[in-house]
Design a binder for these strands. Structure first.
Lengths: 121, 121
DNA sequence: CAAACATATGAGCATCTGCTCATATGTTCA
DNA sequence: TGAACATATGAGCAGATGCTCATATGTTTG
């Protein structure tokens, strides 16, 4: 069975099923935003990145320090930080040889804590 | 360079670097919770699932109707709904042959909207 | 019970992801 | 300038992911 085979009689009686679909789709953000949104949440969908974000919630940190604290390689952390930076969740500040990473978005803490509330139910 | 090779002198002077790491790790949720948290956010990290959640935000819907509205196969949607159910984001209610899915968590709307705020900056 | 309908599920496959390894880039200081 | 340090990055690989296709399960109705 593919997308167009659904017998609409299963749901409440609706005069024009196609128009309802359009109406529902019209009520949500545009397609492109939904992709961006999914990409944004992908950031939080990996435990390494979540750990990094939690660390940065306490204070800004350099790459090597994050790697040490999490017991991971500098390379792995650096790759993830690049991703976090692309997604504008962290920002950097160079001081000599070292580069400090810090959170760049105010929503992060509340998003994390709301997710945490969910899994703790 | 691996995790233990980092020369701690790059950061602020800290008396006992290892203890600081433990302290930072102690300030965040336990390892297992962080995995659960990442798994939770993984749900929002796919545009198909985000679309489903947005639809269910409007009203409960049956599988075939969701598939139709999104222009995807019944199978694809059913697989995703199973995942959403496992993660306790949706719940089901059978009425005869059809099964209605609805949101099962109050955090979903605010998590989605905070994510949306972020990408709209 | 058999046919029709709604949904669920397992296998298979192409793509994506997150790591490692080696190496490059950039900075400081002797 | 060259050595040491901090970070970035590209290639490659194993495992995860999201779909399709075929089929199974469950429900209603003739």
């Amino acid at each position: 069975m593919n997308a167009s085979d659904h017998d609409k009689s299963c749901c409440e009686v609706v005069a024009d099923h196609e128009n309802l679909a359009k109406e529902l789709l019209g009520g949500m953000p545009p397609e492109e935003d939904l992709y961006d949104l999914a990409d944004f949440f992908k950031v939080f969908g990996d435990s390494t990145r979540v750990k990094i974000l939690y660390l940065l919630l306490c204070s800004e940190m350099c790459v090597g320090h994050i790697a040490d604290t999490l017991g991971m390689t500098q390379s792995a952390i650096s790759h993830q930080l690049r991703f976090l930076k692309q997604m504008k969740l962290v920002s950097t500040q160079r001081e000599g040889k070292t580069i400090f990473y810090s959170l760049a978005d105010a929503h992060i803490e509340s998003i994390l804590s709301q997710g945490y509330e969910h899994i703790k139910e």
